[in-house]
Design a protein around this nucleic acid. Sequence first.
RNA 1: GGGCGUGUAGCUUAGCUUGGCUGGAGCACCCGGCUGAUAACCGGGAGGCCGCAGGUUCAAAUCCUGCCAUGCCCA
Length: 1060
Amino acid sequence: MVVPTQAGDLDPVALETALMQTWSEENTFAQSIDERRDGASPFTFLEGPPTANGKPGIHHVISRLFKDLVCRWKTMEGHIVERKAGWDTHGLPVEIEVQKQLDLMSNEAIEAYGMEAFNQKCKESVWTYEQAWREMTERMGFWVDMDDPYVTLHDDFIESAWWSLKQMFDKGLLFRGHKVLPYCPQTGTSYSSHEVALGYKEVSEPAVFVKFKLSDDDASVLAWTTTPWTLPGNVGLAVGPDVTYVRVKITAPPSDSWEGRGGAPLEEELILAKDLMSTVLRHQVEVVEEFPGSNLVGMSYQPLFEGAIDGSNHPAAWTIVGADFVTTTDGTGVVHTAVMYGEDDYNLGMKEGFPAQHTVGMDGRFVEGTHMQLDGRYVKDCDSDIIDLLAEQNSLYREHTYTHDYPHCWRTDHPLLYYAMDSWFVRMTAVKEQILQYNSEVEWAPSWTGEKRMGEWLSNIKDWAISRERYWGTPIPVWICQDCGKEHCIGSIAEMEEMKTADSSMPPELHRPYVDEVKLHCPSEGCSGEMIREPYVMDCWFDSGCASFAQWHYPFENHEKFDGSFPVDYICEAVDQTRGWFYSLMAVSTTVFDSICYRRCLSLGHILDKDGKKMSKSRGNVVNPWDHFNKEGSDSIRWYMMTQSAPWSPTNFDPNGVRESYAKMFLTLWNVHRFHADYAALDGFDPDDEEGFVAVSERSPLDRWILSRLHTVANAYHDQFVAWDFHKAGRDLESFVVNDLSNWYVRRSRRRLWDEADSSDKRACQHTLHEVLLTVCRLMAPVAPFMPDQIHRDLTGVSVHLADWPVGSKLVDSSLPPQDWALEQEMALVRTLAETGRRIRVEADRRQRLPCKSGWIVGGPDISQFHDLLSEELNVESLTTEDDLERFQRIVIEPNRKSLGAKCRQDLPSVLALLAEADPENLLLEIDAGICILEGYDITMEDIEIRRVEQEGYAAATISDEDVGDVSLVLDMVLDEDLLSKGLARDIIRRVQAKRKDLDLDVEATISLSVWIEGLDLSDSDWAHVQSEVRAGTAQLNQGETEGDHFEVDGVSVNFVVEA
RNA sequence: GGGCGUGUAGCUUAGCUUGGCUGGAGCACCCGGCUGAUAACCGGGAGGCCGCAGGUUCAAAUCCUGCCAUGCCCA
C-alpha cells in the first residue's frame, strides 16, 4: 500500500536532479529494458554519432529529445529498446581544429610535425567536450548507454568498415578514378565544401572570348572563359543542342571604344549563341545563318596549344559535343572544356572520351611540354602571357575584366584551382534502381524528405568519392602491387596479418602512419611483388554509414545482436543529414547487404535563434541549454520543443516559450498532484484498499466525465504519436491538464475533499484523481521523464518508466477508463453555458457575486444532472429548462455558401442579398414546403442553416454548437432584499478569506470576526453562512463606531476585523 | 545557379492535403470579473496588406505562376 505524502512547493531543478540520482542508483534505464525481455519484441534504434569536439548547444537537445521520446514510448508499449551511444571521431573538422591549434598550415607542415604525433593530437581533440556532452545528455534525461558506446576510431569499428569496403570491392563496386576538387597547390591540399565556404572572396580577373577555328570551315567558334590557364588543357567545346546559334560575318570595324587585346578582321566569320550576340560582339556584323546547336555537334576544330595534350587514340578530342548544362545566361553559349579542371568538364570528358591529361602539376605549375613560354610556371602568373599568345595567333576575340566570388584557401589566401585528383569511388550509379526502391520503402517523416529531397538526390545519383588525401581517418584498406599493379582490398586484421611481408610488423592501431608501413605480398599468380597501401583515408561519412553493423563489430562478433537489429526500426537526425548520414547508411546497406538500413526516419527542422537566424559559434547566438536546465528544468525544455512546432519545421527558439511550458503545463500538473496528495495524505487514502474502492459506474457524473475525457484525449494523443504529429499530441494533452483537469475537474471538486468525514463521494473523487494523474503521467513520461516519474512514484512507489503505455499495444493492455461520449457533450455544453453566463453578466452589468433569482436554459440536450453545478457557476438560485423557444428566441437563416455557390455560381451575391432581406419565418416555411425560388434557383434546406438567437430585451445569449445545436441561456435580472443580502454575504466572505490569506493563517485555523454593515440588513441565515465559510469561532455583528478594514459594494458600507 | 523546406497579430503558432460561414489559439498589453486557485482562472477589448505581385474562380491564407526574405543540401 502506498499512501501519498504531502507534495510541497515545486522546485523543478531540485526535483529533476534528485531523480537523476535515483535513476542512477536504481539503474532505472537498464531495468526499463530488462523488464521487457519477456515480450521479446525488440524495437531497434540507431544513434547518429555526434562529434564531441564542439560544445553541445540547445540545437543538440532537440534531436536527442526526439530520439529519446520515441524510444521511451516504444519501451512503454512493451518493446525491448536498446540504445547504444556512438561517437563520430574522424574527419576533416578534427584535423582543421588541430591544425589551427598547432599552426600547421600545410600538409608539408603536418608531415614535418610528424603524422603520428599529429594523429595523436587529433585523437585527443575529439574528446575535448565528451564530458560536456555526457552531462548534457544525462541532465536532459536522454537515456542512452554512454558507458559502452561505439567509437569510429576504435579498431573494432574500423575493422568492420574495412570488411564492408571489401564486400564492395569484391562486387566490383570500388574503383579508382578522378574527382575534381578545389585544390590549393601551396598547401598541397584539396578542400571540402565547408572549407571552401570559409574562403570565398570577390576578385577581378581577366576573362577572354576565344576563337576556335573549325577544321573544315573558315569560321571560328567563340567560347568564353574566366580561367585562361585552363586553355592549354582544352580538348573540347560544348554546345546546347537546342540552343539557337548564329554564324555572323564581320562587316565593319568596331566603334572606337575597343579595349585590350584581340580583335577580328573584316569578313571573318564567328559562331555563337544568338541570344548573346549583342553582349559579346563589338563589331558590326551580318547574320549569315541561324541553326540549332545540334548542327555543330561532331565538328572538329584546331587545338589552341598544339602538343600540350596527346590526342592520339582519342577521336573525340577537339570536337564539338552537345551538353545539357550549356546555357545562354553568360559567355557565348559555347563552353570551353578542359577535362581535368572542372567537374562538368570532367564528367563530360568521361562521357565523350576526351583525353584526361593534366597540363598542370600538383604544384600548380604547367607541366613540361605544354608550351615553351609556360612550362614550369605557376598558372595564375601566366594569365597575361596566355592572352598574348592567343592574340598573336589571332585566336583572341576580346578580353575584359570579370568580377566574381571565387574560393580561396583559408590558410594561405591563394585562389583555389579546380583540379582532378586521384580518388577512390563506390559505384553508386550501378545500384541506382535498388537504392531508389529501398528509399521508397522507408517511412519518412515528413514524407517529402524521402520522396523529394532524398528522392531527387538519388535519381541523380553519382559515384561516391570515398577517399580523402588526409591523415586522420579510417585508412582505405587497398594495397597496390608495385610490380604488376594488382589492387587488393583487406577485409580484416587477420587477412592483413596473413598477407603482410615478413619485415612488416602489425600496426599497433588501424590508423596512419602505422598501416602505411604495412607491405603485403602480391597475391597474383606468378608475381612476387610488394604491395603498398594507397595513402588515403575514408570520407568520414563512410564511417558513420557503417554504424548499423560496425557498432557491433559485425561480422567478427555479435551476430545475434546484429541479426536482431537490422534493419533498424528508427533513426532521427536533423534535415541536413539527408545527404549526409541518411544517405551514407542507405548507400552502405544497399551495396553491402542489398537491403534497406532503417524502416523509419524522422528528419527534424533546425532550431534557429529568435530572429530566425541559424545558431553558430561565430554569430554568438548559440543558446546554452544549461540556462534552462538550471531554471525551468529539462521537462519544460523538452515539452516546449515538442509542442512548439511540427518536428520538421524550422523553429525560432523562444526562451519565453520554455517559461510558458513550465508555468502552464508543469506547474499546473504539480498543483493538481499536490491538491490530491495533500488530502490523500491527510485522509490516509489507500488506492489499493478494496473496501474503500468506488466503482466508476458509482461515481458522480463529474468523475465519469473527466475519466471519459481522459480516454478520448489519450486515444487522440496516441494516434498523433503514430502519425508523427507530436506537437499536436502535446498541445491537446496540455489543454486537457490545464483546462479539463485543473480548471474544471479540480476546481469543481475542491469542496468534495474539504469534507473531513469519510464519504463515498470523497473516495470517488480521490480514486478518480489518482487514476487520471497516473494515466497523464504515463502519457507524458516519454516526453517529460522527470515530473511524471516523481508523481508516479509518489502515488504508486514505482517508476513511470517501468509502466505500460495506457492506450495499450500489441504487447501491453490498455488501462483507459470507460468512455461516455454523451456525457462529454453534455459537460461541454455546461461549461460553455457557464462562460456564457459570465458574458451575459458583463453585458447586463451585474456582478458575479450578486445572485440571480432564476435562470432558464432553452434548447439543447437534457443536462438536468448538472443543474446544481451550473447554478453555482452561474450564481442563480433556480435553474430550469424552458421548452417554449418563442418566449426568448427568434430564428435567423444563414446561407450555406458552399452549397449555394455550387448551385448559383456568379448569381451568388444577388441570391445572398435576397436571403438577407427575407423574413426568416416566412422564408423557412417556403423552403420547407419546397416552393422557395430565388433568382430562378430552387432553394432547399441544404442551402441554409437555421440558427436561433435570443430575442432583444432579455439578459440572454445563444450559443451555436455543431453537436447540440442552438442553446440559449436567459437570466432573471430582478433584484430584491434577499438577493442583495446573499450577494453581500459573498462579498464579506471573499474579503475575509483574502484577509486570512494575508495573515498567512492555516486553512483549518479558526478566527474571531467582527463586522459592521451600514445600508443593508444581512439576513440571519446569510450571517450564519459567513461564519461557517470563514471558520469564525466567534463572530460579532456590530452597530456604531467602526474599525478595521473597510469596503463598499452597491452603496453598502462594510467594516470588518479578523483576529486569529 | 539548382533541389527541398519555411514566411499568418509585438512574440510563438493553428488553419493549407480536399477553396466557402466572422482566419483560431497561447504569451505580452488594456478594461472588467472571479478566487483559500498556482507564475491560476473567466468575460470583453485592441492588435492581421495571411511575405509581395499576378492568375484561376461566384469565392483564395488555401490552387497556379513569378518575385522577395530565410534555412538546409548540392553546385
